[in-house]
Amino acid sequence: MISLTSPVETWAHRWPAGLKLGLMSLATVALFATEDPAILGASAFGVALLYASAGARFARAGARQLWPLWPFLVLIALWHGLSGQVAAGVALTLRLLAAVALANFVTMTTRLSAMIEVAAVLLAPFRRLGLSTRALEISIALVIRFTPAIARKGGLLSEAWRARSRRRPGWQIVMPLAALAIDDADHVADALKARGGVLPIPDTDQKG
């Protein structure tokens, strides 16, 4: 399974989740405010330094997680290359890379429960209106936990296909993958229910 957590404890793990998410949001807004490839290039380099500062092992794990981005980057480069807007293409690529890498850095160095707590604080106004935000908080955890799990299931299905075919699998594995995802959802629902589910348990959200 692709891991969204870091293989090692870094300095960034000790920073509060709210601060990291806040800084990341500001940086992302800043990235979208400029079209200058030089500034965007410097930003991407800065993010690379951020990964390097957390150690070689961390940086390698981070690079592995960003690798799936390459088809998108190639697509952007091709499109802008063909339409002659090279500078815009470079800017877009650098911006995308810097923003995603920064978000990935925060994800890798923040515990999921800390992330959910930030969400709980931000959702406080809705709770005051009498809405339960617990389901939304748990959903965030589930998306982060199960995206890689479903990707792995897709990998297994394509192996099952290749074991009996000379051709590569295509759209044919989409339906069984959807069925597996629904099956997984059933299991997770059980796991949640077995430990209280998303019952609006008094004070749980606010306590601590």
């Binding site: 891991s3 969204l4 957590t5 515990r111 999921l112 429960s113 955890a141 589930l142 982060i144 936990r145 799990a149 997984d184 299991h187 997770v188 059980d190 796991a191 949640l192 077995a194």
Partner: peptide
């Protein structure tokens, strides 16, 4: 309850 497959039970990353 402990499920047959722990992968169906573990919800969190750590």
């Amino acid at each position: 309850i402990l499920f047959q497959n722990p992968d169906h039970q573990i919800i969190f990353p750590t």
